[in-house]
Design a protein around this nucleic acid. Structure first.
Lengths: 338, 338
DNA sequence: CCCGCTTTGACATACGTATGTCAATATTCT
DNA sequence: AGAATATTGACATACGTATGTCAAAGCGGG
């Protein structure tokens, strides 16, 4: 009637509880023959471990640490909000957040070195690309701590996984949208970036140009603006470009500072088609009033959920699919705003 | 050090375990003053009920039934796969699936009437819009079974909630996309539907026409095809329409049977811009090879998760936000396929 | 056959909460 | 004040698994 327990399995397999436990938790000291007899019984009965009872009995609590850049980056602050929100709801793990000065690899490396492996079992870190960080990360792994990179990856380091979107794909998606939005109206396309020194921005540009060149060759891409994610600089530089080139038909803003984009476009007609990143109060408003055509975002909640479950799996020594941690890219138009 | 338990709360509030339990589980027979003393202690200590222990102790298992249309509708089959997949993983609820002939309100009503309230505590149903179904649903509610509609709503019935996307919004999103994709090329737009008998199709059409008429008045909308989500009928009818009207610039397929759309378009040039619903192996392929421009989908996993947690909350008598159950609309282009 | 090693069993205890019973107070009503 | 009722406490048991200890049995080599 009700779900079979390990007692039922033991009885069915003709062994003791201890042996079932040994098989179930992959301990040593069980003959191959016995092991498969127990496994067969479990399959037969359709046994499923009662996770509530298990996690009650095994009073272990993983502690996970998230290391994020501080400062006013609204995406990171949103991530932090999401983390503290989830920290309360999560049952069997404890979540902590540490912030470090942005774009400061020494500070990040120091923070990684401070992690106490007795206290912390897993770390998710928004990496900056640098040798000291790679070294600190390797040290941490040597201490037995699970490590994943979040949002911004650190390839050829010893991080076990990356959690975040595929930024090349994001750029390609933006190009598919913008190209279609401008179809039949050849002209120039402006890319507004923060800085090409930041990896995700460079990758987004790459993907964008790939697709636009290949599929919409009638459009001419101007050299990207690097406006340091500052809305005033964005407004000034983009305004200048629009003045100089009346034939701009599309704008792709792949970093922050999108308020500057809206300001630069205000009052111009015809309005260029516009695709930007990150859903904020302002970009939402711009979608609603028609100044932006599409917004691409990565979802805070999924990002956090993926990082947590990945770290849990890594700590438990469970197998992890290579594609775990990949977050989908979300596309928003005026009419599917959440 | 570790998380506080009800014992700690009892000690801190100077009451017994029983009283803490009475407060925690909202039983009667506790004076207001005591109640707030206990609540204060819980807040003070940051007490959080250990769900594992709770659900172990309270050995209750909800049974939920999902009633889906049968047939070859790949979205429904995907939903069913997701359900059986989750059924294994879910801990404290038992999931069952029943299928009924599609677009058959009598069969659906019969299935609803067959539900045994002693066995089944909650039902999620893909509704067809009809009086017999409304009546059967009301009967079920009278028996004390929690009921939510899934995917396709049944307004002014006694269902307690709707789980799914906002289908009007989905139609509006499709129109924003398709309108932009066809901009500068006035012509005719074809809507391919399954049946206006199901609410979701009717709503999608409504939203689509709203936006297209208001924002892209240069396009002329043809009367919708009702092809019963059957790819052969879709292929035949759409093919006929395309033959008759060489000036079709856009296609919106808002139901299933999208393979028929691809077949009808094969070899035609110039290819109309195409937006379809549901991400399947075939629509994915069509996106990749350029026959479709965009796919709108509702996520199986989220749909199931939302339905289950909503039903659980309803059964437990917990308060439910009115917006719970609303699933986001996902937009896929070739480059952000998951 | 004894020795050492591996495999298995019996049993006990713990995890934190839910729930029930029955007695002991406290409070209100008459 | 006494009775009736409302509130609280003490205690016991159960949920299904994890984990440890110690003994018993099995098995091979010498």
């Amino acid at each position: 009637m009700s779900r079979p327990t390990i007692h039922d399995v033991a009885r069915a397999a003709g062994v003791s509880l201890s042996t079932v436990d040994r098989v179930l938790n992959e301990r040593t000291g069980v003959r191959q023959a016995t092991q498969s007899r127990v496994a067969a019984a479990m399959r037969e009965l359709g046994f499923q471990r009662n996770l509530a009872a298990a996690s009650l009995a095994r009073r272990r609590q993983d502690r996970l640490l998230f290391i994020l850049p501080g400062g006013s980056n609204s995406f990171m602050r949103g991530l932090e909000r999401e983390l503290t929100r989830k920290a309360a709801a999560w049952e069997f793990t404890q979540l902590e957040v540490a912030t470090v000065p942005p774009f400061d690899d020494a500070a990040l490396a120091a923070a990684l070195r401070e992690v106490d492996p007795a206290q912390t079992h897993g770390v998710a870190v928004v990496a900056t690309d640098s040798a000291v960080v790679r070294a600190a990360l390797a040290e941490l792994r040597d201490k037995g701590v699970a490590v994943v990179t979040l949002v911004s990856d650190l390839p050829s380091s010893r991080r076990q996984h990356f959690v975040g979107i595929d930024n090349v794909q994001a750029g390609r998606t933006a190009a598919s949208l913008l190209g279609r939005f401008c179809r039949g109206r050849p002209g120039r396309i402006v890319i507004v970036a923060g800085s090409m020194l930041v990896r995700d921005h460079a990758e987004r540009r790459l993907g964008f140009e790939q697709v636009l060149r290949a599929e919409f060759p009638e459009q001419q891409i101007l050299p990207p603006l690097e406006a340091l994610d500052d809305q005033d600089i964005v407004a000034a530089e983009l305004g200048a470009v629009l003045d100089r080139h009346p034939d701009v038909v599309g704008i792709y803003s792949l970093g922050a500072g999108t308020r500057g984009v809206a300001r630069a476009m205000a009052g111009r007609t015809p309005r260029p088609a516009t695709v930007v990143h990150e859903l904020t109060a302002h970009s939402r408003q711009a979608l609603l009033d028609g100044s932006f055509d599409a917004v691409i975002r990565q979802d805070h909640a999924r990002e956090v959920a993926a990082a947590v479950s990945l770290l849990q799996a890594l700590i438990a020594g469970k197998p992890v699919e290579p594609e775990a941690g990949r977050i989908g890219i979300e596309v928003f138009l005026r009419d599917n705003l959440p």
